[in-house]
């Protein structure tokens, strides 16, 4: 029964996410579409983090690193394409691109490589040490991005025209929303499948008990590393979309506030819940939008609300609505 309730809530969330932009389009409220697109993209970043954090128990405080890497993949490729300057001329010429599909592939690969290196080092630690060492890597990349002048440093990098997708006018807000929504749906489907797969069970096992996994011949380190890399790739993809949403990337995408915010989406919505990040990102953006213009000190009530959720609504928003989870 409880599972059913969560399924109903998930369906309602999905329906809202699709219906709101359509209604907004009909009413000519273009900005609402932009806002919901932002929700979809940040939710996608959260879906990525949720795989490491919710299912793998890997509390990464450095996912902004992958979000930013994805963003810079989009920014750098597009700026090279727009300036007709190849990115590299040796050993063979690599030119920039304004095709989203190419950019996504690069963002996925770049964040996977970064996660492989970072994960290989950080996964030797656990608990609080893991939280802090992931933060340290993100800070390293952040300071590098600020002081490296080639791609704008702290000023960031503008993408003057949103990158293209075959057959769609991506500058039309509803088309771009559609792209983001489809990618979010794919990621949600993928993570649902992943959790139920043999890999998902092994990940769950590695989270519960390293020793027992070793004794049945499964190497928990490799399982965790794989989860970390997958998680980073999804967050990196979200970063590429976020760059296209804003037509701009800057080191602020790599800052620890961003890591914190992605984490907030996941926890606010409900850790380890499939639609947790969607609910969390939606609520956060809604609050930011409603409170932001109303009151100079709007972050004060936002803080109080976050505090109340974490103290009294355990399991986040989804947990509050759907009740405590039944463990399989």
């Amino acid at each position: 029964m409880i599972m059913n309730r969560e399924t109903i809530i998930n369906s309602v969330l999905a329906a809202l996410l699709i219906a709101i932009p359509l209604v907004a389009q009909a009413m000519g409220e273009i900005f609402i579409i932009t806002l919901v697109t932002k929700v979809a993209i940040l939710a996608l970043a959260g879906v990525g983090l949720n795989i490491a954090l919710g299912y793998g128990g890997l509390v990464s405080f450095g996912h902004a690193a992958f979000f930013g890497i994805g963003g810079y993949a989009a920014g750098i490729l597009a700026s090279h394409a727009l300036n007709y300057q190849p990115i590299a001329t040796w050993p063979f010429e690599i030119s920039g691109s304004t095709q989203m599909i190419v950019i996504w592939a690069v963002a996925l690969i770049a964040s996977a490589l970064a996660a492989l290196v970072i994960g290989a080092i950080t996964l030797r630690t656990s608990g609080v040490y893991f939280i802090m060492i992931t933060l340290a890597f993100a800070q390293m990349i952040y300071y590098f991005a600020i002081s490296w002048p080639a791609y704008g440093g702290e000023d960031g990098l503008s993408i003057y025209v949103r990158n293209g997708f075959p057959g769609l006018n991506t500058l039309d807000p509803i088309s771009f929303f559609a792209i983001c929504a489809v990618l979010l749906a794919l990621a949600l489907w993928f993570s649902a499948v992943l959790v139920r797969s043999r890999f998902g069970l092994a990940l769950h096992g590695a989270r519960q008990n390293d020793q027992r996994m070793k004794s049945v011949g499964i190497a928990p380190f490799r399982i965790k590393l794989t989860a970390f890399v997958i998680s980073a790739m999804i967050t990196g993809l979200a970063g590429a979309l976020y760059a296209d949403l804003n037509r701009f990337v800057s080191p602020s995408m790599l800052s620890w506030h961003m890591s914190g915010e992605i984490m907030v989406f996941v926890i606010l919505g409900g850790v380890g819940r499939l639609f947790g990040p969607v609910a969390g990102a939606g609520l956060y953006i809604l609050l930011e939008h409603l409170l932001g213009g109303a009151f100079d000190y709007w972050q004060l009530p936002l803080g109080v609300l976050l505090l109340l959720v974490v103290l009294f609504a355990r399991g986040g928003l989804i947990g509050l609505l759907a009740g405590e989870r039944k463990h399989a």
Binding site: T34, G156, F248, S252, D296
Partner: peptide, 23 residues
């Protein structure tokens, strides 16, 4: 005059500009 807070974050500033222009 419509006034909004950008929180000193570029991505927020971009989204506010979209809001100012579109909405």
């Amino acid at each position: 005059v419509v006034i909004e807070d950008d929180q000193q974050k570029p991505d927020i500033a971009v989204q506010l500009a979209d809001k100012m222009i579109q909405s």
